[in-house]
Design a protein around this nucleic acid. Sequence first.
RNA 1: GGAGACGUGGCCGAGUGGUCGAAGGCGCUCCCCUGCUAAGGGAGUAAGCGGUUUGUAGCCGUUUCGAGGGUUCGAAUCCCUUCGUCUCCGCCA
Length: 430
Amino acid sequence: MHDIRAIRENPTAFDAALARRGNDPMSPTILAIDEERRAKITRAEAALAERNAASKLVGAAKASGDDAEFERLRALVSDKKTEVAALEEEAKGMDAKLNDLLMTIPNLPYDDAPMGADENDNVEMHKWGTPPVLDFEPVEHFDIKSVTRGMDFETAAKLSGSRFVILSGAIARTHRALAQFMLDVHTTENGLTEVNAPVLVRDETMLGTGQLPKFAEDSYQTTNGWWLIPTSEVTLTSIPAGTTMDDESLPKRFTAHSLCFRSEAGSAGRDTSGMLRQHQFEKVEMVSITKPEESDAELERMTKCAEGILERLNLAYRTVKLCTGDMGFGARRTYDIEVWLPGQNTYREISSCSTCGDFQSRRMNARFKRTGEKKPEFVHTLNGSGLAVGRCLIAVLENGQQADGSVNLPDVLHPYMGGKTKINADGSLG
RNA sequence: GGAGACGUGGCCGAGUGGUCGAAGGCGCUCCCCUGCUAAGGGAGUAAGCGGUUUGUAGCCGUUUCGAGGGUUCGAAUCCCUUCGUCUCCGCCA
C-alpha cells in the first residue's frame, strides 16, 4: 500500500520508480481520484458539522423544556440528515475507489535494484563453493537410481493429479531431516523464534502481504472462503498486523516450517518433471519485523542465514540481486539464492529474500512507537526462504549422487539420519 | 454442530439513548516535595482523515467504544448481520 501523501508530494518520483519496474505512470489517475475524494470529504464533513451543531441545540432545548424550540430544531436536523447521508456516501465511495486502486499497485523498487525486464537482467552478487566434479554423467534427481523408488509421481498423480509427489523411505526421511536441520540452525544459531502457524487464512491476511487482490488465481481457496497460504510469509508477517509495538521489541525474527500451496497458474509446461515445481511443498521461512533504519542491514543478515544453510550442506550456490522486472509485487529489493543442480547443469532458485519496506505494514497497519515519541511509525517487513525444503532435497540428491546410483549425504545431516551417511543404490539407508 | 456470555483508550475497568473521546485505576511523561531508596502532591497522556498553515507545531472540523448495517433529532448504550473470545454440551486428531 502506498502512502497517498508521498504520491501527492512527489508524483514524478512515484511514476519514475514505477517506470523502472516497467509500469505505466499512475499518479495522474491517483491524484485525480484523491482530489475528488478530498473535496467530497470536505463537503460531507461541513454538512456533518452543521448537523452536529444543530443536534446539540436539540439536546439543550429538550433539557430546558422548550418544546416549541425542540420541535423546530428536530425538524431542521431531520432535513440535514438526508443531505449528510448522500454526501457521506459519495465521500466513502471515492475513498474506496482510491484504496482499491492503491492496493493493486506494486511496491517501488529501491534505487539500487538493477533495472531490467526479466531474470536475464538479474545481477550476480557472489558465488560460493564449487560444483562437484564427477567422473560420470550426472542425472536429474528423479533419475538417480537410489531415488526412484522413494519418489513416486505416478501414484501421487493417481491420488491428486500432476505436480504432486509421494516421498517414502530414505527420501522422505532426508526431506524431513533437512527441515529439522534448517529450523535448528535458525533457532539456535541465527536467533529466530520458531513459529507454527495456520496454513488457512482469511482474505484480509492475504491482502496484507499482497497476494490479494491481484493474484487470487495463484492461490487455492476453500469452499468457505479460506485461502491456503502460498508461503508462511503470509502468516508470519501478519502476526503484528493491527498492533503498535514498543521499539524495544524490534526486531522480531520468526521462522516456520510449513506446507505451501500454489496453483502454478501460468507455469504450464515449466519444470514439469521432478519435484522442482509442485502444487504443495514445504518451506522453512524467515520473517523479520524491523524499524525502518534497520531493514537494509536485516536483509543482508537474512540472506546470510539462508546462505549459511547451503554452506553447511556444502552445496554450491550463487546469489543474485533481482532486477526491477523480476521482483515480486511487494518487494523493494530482492536477493535470490540459486543452488547448483548437477542434473540440470545450472543454478536454480532455492531462496528469495526481500525487503518490503513499509509496503506490507501499511496494508496491515503494523506499527511501532519509539520510546519518548508520540507518533507511531510503520515497521518494515522482510521475508526470505531459509530454505525451500523440496528444492533443497533435490540439491542434496543431485550433488551427492555417485556413479553407482547411490547418494552421499552431507555431514551435517548425519545426526538427523540416525547416523546414516548415504542412501544406497537400492534405496536403503547406509 | 447445539446453548449461553462477552468484545470500551497501552492495560484493567465504569458507563443501558442526550453535551461521552468516554469515570476511576494502573502504566507512561513532565513538574514539585523528600539529602539516596520508598512514599507523597500537581499536570499531562489515542489514532485516522479533512481543512488551515512555511510547517510531521498549533488551531478548526470529522470519524473511531471488535466490524458492517439499521432505528432515532441524537447510540458505547436499542435492533439486525458478521468476526472474534470464553463457558457448558456434542464430536473428534
